[in-house]
């Protein structure tokens, strides 16, 4: 029933912005918050509802890096690669997580849709370098090993929850 709730939310979002095409960016932000990404079908739905062309919506969605067209995992891991984290070897953490989760340069999300691993420019927590954020939670002063351990803990609790 989650999808029904999602979809009703999209209808509510469109109604809240009075189907005004000038509010496209705000609408897309709200829709992405609902689905965690923007699918072709939903973008076409939004375009038709606003009376603009889907190509225009696609243009806006691909222009801003805030928007994502790929479904993201349940846990979004953002590895800080700002200057402070970078000199503290954040890339080693990225490589370790990618290896652990079998991700590549092109694939950022695991097949089980649990994890998405990405880099961000600066989290503003340089005192904790190298730092990562998992969903809303910040973890600092990490090594590749402690970072992988965080992921292993999540995997363990997810496995338990599924039993």
């Amino acid at each position: 029933m989650e999808k029904i709730r999602n979809f009703e939310q999209v209808c509510n979002i469109l109604a809240r912005y009075e189907r005004n095409p000038n509010s496209l960016i705000s609408i897309l932000q709200a829709v992405q918050a609902e689905y965690r990404y923007l699918s072709e079908e939903v973008m076409t739905f939004v375009a038709s509802s606003l009376g603009i062309s889907p190509a225009k919506v696609f243009g806006v969605a691909t222009f801003y890096s805030h928007f994502t067209l790929q479904p993201k995992g349940k846990y979004e891991i953002k590895i800080c690669d700002g200057t402070a984290c970078h000199v503290k070897k954040s890339i080693d953490i990225l490589d370790a997580l990618k290896q652990h989760l079998h991700l590549t340069d092109k694939e950022h999300t695991t097949k089980d849709m649990l994890f998405t691993v990405e880099t961000v420019s600066c989290l503003g927590t340089c005192g904790l370098a190298p730092a990562i954020v998992i969903n809303e939670e910040v973890h600092g002063l990490l090594t590749p090993e402690t970072a992988v351990q965080l992921v292993k803990d999540i995997q363990k609790s997810e496995a338990l929850a599924n039993e």
């Binding site: 072709e40 973008m43 076409t44 375009a47 603009i52 062309s53 889907p54 190509a55 225009k56 919506v57 696609f58 243009g59 691909t62 222009f63």
Partner: peptide, 28 residues
């Protein structure tokens, strides 16, 4: 008033294309 093609992506990757990088025969 058709808008079958538009700019997508940005910077060096900017391309004029139909929505979702579909082919012209799949769009309006």
């Amino acid at each position: 008033h058709v808008g079958a093609i538009d700019f997508a992506y940005r910077g060096a990757n900017a391309t004029v294309m139909p929505c979702f990088d579909k082919n012209l025969d799949q769009v309006e």
